[in-house]
């Protein structure tokens, strides 16, 4: 597990990944590695707790889009919660929110995903 991923857990068959730091190329690759590994194990639903990530760049967003594309192939889903306003805004501008969901809390995310 990279420094960017601080925890991975499951809740109601949903893999919850907690991140910390810059969601850039490195951070994005760390997330995708976990997601692809879990997909190989049959998991299709993912949530990212982004409380520790205050900034994201377009490369990080690109990687998330790649992950969404992969999940769509298996009818999987990905969602995010605890987003900093700037991160939420970036996700919105970059069109990410059209293909994935943003939630307020873990409980809401688990219920809605």
């Amino acid at each position: 597990m990279s420094d960017f991923i601080t925890s991975i857990k499951e809740n109601n068959s949903i893999v919850i990944i907690e991140t910390n730091g810059y969601l850039n190329n490195v951070g994005g690759e760390a997330v995708s590695a976990v997601v692809y590994e879990k997909m190989a194990q049959g998991q299709t639903k993912f949530l990212i707790n982004m409380a520790g990530t205050k900034i994201v760049n377009s490369i990080g967003v690109s990687i998330l889009i790649e992950i969404i594309e992969k999940l769509q192939e298996v009818n999987g889903k990905i969602g995010y919660y605890n987003l900093a306003p700037i991160v939420a805004k970036t996700f919105n501008i970059m069109g990410l929110t059209k293909y994935s969901t943003v939630h307020e809390t873990e409980e809401a995310a688990v219920n809605e995903l």
Binding site: Y22, N24, N25, V26, I55, V56, N57, I86, T90
Partner: peptide, 11 residues
Amino acid sequence: LVKSCGVLNAS
């Protein structure tokens, strides 16, 4: 700094 890095894809 953080926002600049983010918006300009700086590592």
